[in-house]
Computed example of a mutant assay.
Amino acid sequence: MAAGVAIGVLAVRKLSVARQTFGPEGLNRAVGSLADSVANFADAVRDGMQEREADLRAALGVDR
């Protein structure tokens, strides 16, 4: 039981430090930045797929 209490206290302390470090605005910025990064990656993958499809169609002589 003492180990559980100690782990709980440590977890609360770490969360408090993280909350003070990031704050609500910092956390929102971090999540927004992550969302932008994921969207940019998806766009890059989509563009690459379109380029590859165009290359394959040209190589096979298939018209759109």
Rank of each mutant, 00 (worst) to 15 (best):
V62W: 00
G4C: 06
S37I: 04
Q20W: 08
V5Y: 09
S33A: 15
A58I: 05
V5H: 09
R52T: 03
A39E: 13
A2G: 13
L15E: 03
A2D: 13
R46I: 04
V31I: 12
A6W: 04
R29H: 11
V9G: 00
A35I: 11
Q50T: 10
D55C: 00
G61T: 01
A18L: 14
V5Q: 08
K14A: 09
N40E: 15
K14Q: 05
N28M: 12
A54D: 09
D63T: 10
D47M: 11
V5G: 03
V38N: 12
V38F: 09
A3P: 00
N28E: 11
A42N: 08
A18Y: 13
Q20C: 04
Q50N: 12
S33Q: 14
L10K: 08
A42T: 08
M49L: 09
V38A: 09
R19W: 10
A59T: 01
V45K: 14
R64T: 11
A54S: 10
L56C: 08
V31M: 14
M49D: 05
V5C: 05
A6P: 02
A35S: 14
G32F: 08
V38Y: 05
D63Y: 10
V12E: 00
A35G: 06
I7T: 13
S16I: 03
V12K: 02
R46F: 07
P24T: 09
A42S: 09
A2Y: 11
R13V: 04
A39Y: 15
A35R: 14
L10Y: 05
A6N: 03
D47L: 11
A3Q: 11
G26V: 04
V9I: 04
S16E: 01
S33K: 15
E51P: 00
R64Q: 13
L10C: 06
V5D: 08
P24A: 14
G48Y: 02
F41E: 12
V31R: 12
P24G: 10
G48C: 01
A35D: 08
A30L: 14
V5N: 10
L34A: 15
R52E: 09
V31A: 12
A35P: 01
V62H: 03
T21L: 06
A59S: 04
Q50W: 11
P24K: 15
A59D: 03
N28S: 12
E51D: 12
G4S: 10
M1F: 09
V5F: 13
A3C: 10
D55I: 00
A54C: 03
V62T: 07
L15P: 00
E53N: 09
G4P: 01
L56D: 00
D36L: 15
A39T: 15
V12A: 14
A18T: 12
R29T: 06
A35M: 07
V45T: 11
A58P: 01
A6C: 13
A11G: 03
G26W: 04
N40M: 15
A44W: 07
A42L: 08
D36E: 15
G23L: 00
M49N: 06
V5I: 15
